[in-house]
Design a protein around this nucleic acid. Structure first.
Lengths: 222, 222
DNA sequence: AGGCTATATGACTCTTGAGTAAGTTAACCC
DNA sequence: GGGTTAACTTACTCAAGAGTCATATAGCCT
């Protein structure tokens, strides 16, 4: 009985693309996460299907489920990657020793330079379409808190300098500062004409206009 | 041949809830829009199904399609309603004759008072999960532009006073101001402890901390 | 009472996208 | 060269939700 024209019910499905391609799991995972970051960042969580990511990474959907378990699992891996990159940059500038508005400017400057080659990373983390519930996002909340804490630290410095010690005031101001930060980055992403340097200078002009002359001693800006 | 046990293929489906309930179309449309605003605002466009809205309004799904044509049509009606309410409030305070930070404070104060009884209206308009494409949203962009223009106007006043006339600087600052506005409103919606009056006072304290003493002459604040 | 129309709905279809069952293929080892 | 394992795939199931069809009911008019 020929295997190819078997009469038994065990039909054989040829899979010309199956079999290892010499790419080990960790490397393949990294490729998938990279493709996922780009798509999640550019189209949002909702606008991105697992099949899209698979195609973009050049592999098939079940491989993603083998490696990440679910769409949420893939998303968490992408958010971890992206926010790890962003947080370490924020940590770096937070440790630069600047304070007040100078610290704000240095942080923005670092972020613009970091994002220039891969702007989509930003919106992987700040994705308005990502599910707010979903226990998988509990992890995200933790990482987000690290970012928030840096913001709170900087804002608290500034407000203490001015004599305001009300914790709720500080928290509301922190929310405002974060949104300023985000909106300036978003504005820049939507206006590709500015280089990172130009955008930093623009921010400095705006700060100066609103707050008066800034003290940028100890920074490489200005 | 009994109608109830007909042998012919024309089976009869009883519909105990069909038939008019004495509610004319315009009134019913308003009820549906009200329910839609609440759900779209609280769960977002994506998190809300047409069936949810129908159930919440106490009617059935096809009636929504009769009256609004599609989910997008319903959404547009809800956004029109909500943004109409918000824009007229912004127009009112914009016409109050204040300028600079005082205008900002008056606008925030009016918005807090407006939103207190129905806070979800805000997130109907600023819904991160609403489809950005979809030609139906072209209309939304127009209404959104009216809000943006008010912001630009206020920001331009402030920046001209300080001698900055760069249009792109003004636009970036407008983006920042809008996000400050939104983040303060959002912070308030997430901290139900504050009454509108208290939140306005909080904003004034924050502004004072950051910008120094404010000139609130001609406002009912302070 | 009988017909007309606006109001209203129960029960479908169809598409999309998450997730899975059941395998197939290539490389490596002995 | 046969067995083992990791890498990889084809072809499916299943659920949710947008949108539709055909029809039913109530009130009004004459």
């Amino acid at each position: 009985m020929s295997r190819l024209s078997s009469v038994s019910s065990a039909t054989r499905t040829p899979r010309p693309n199956a079999g290892t391609k010499g790419v080990a799991r960790p490397e393949r995972e990294a490729q998938i996460v990279e493709a996922g970051c780009r798509l999640f960042g550019e189209r949002g969580y909702i606008g991105t299907s697992v099949a899209d990511v698979a195609e973009s990474a050049g592999i098939s959907k079940p491989l993603i489920y083998n490696y990440f378990g679910s769409k949420d699992g893939l998303h968490v891996a992408c958010v971890q990657h992206a926010s790890g990159v962003l947080v370490s940059e924020i940590e770096r500038t937070a440790a630069s020793g600047t304070i007040g508005f100078a610290r704000a400017a240095v942080t923005l400057d670092g972020m613009f330079r970091l994002l220039e080659p891969r702007p989509w990373l930003w919106r992987v983390v700040f994705d308005a379409t990502a599910p707010r519930e979903g226990e998988a996002q509990a992890w995200l909340a933790e990482h987000e808190r690290r970012i928030i804490d840096f913001g709170r630290e900087g804002v608290a410095e500034l407000m203490h300098l001015s004599g305001n010690h009300d914790d709720l005031d500080i928290d509301a101001m922190r929310a405002a500062w974060e949104s300023i930060f985000r909106s300036l980055v978003n504005w820049w992403l939507d206006h590709p004409g500015d280089s990172p340097e130009e955008m930093t200078q623009r921010c400095l002009r705006i700060f100066t206009t609103v707050f008066g002359e800034l003290d940028l001693a100890g920074t490489a800006l200005g």
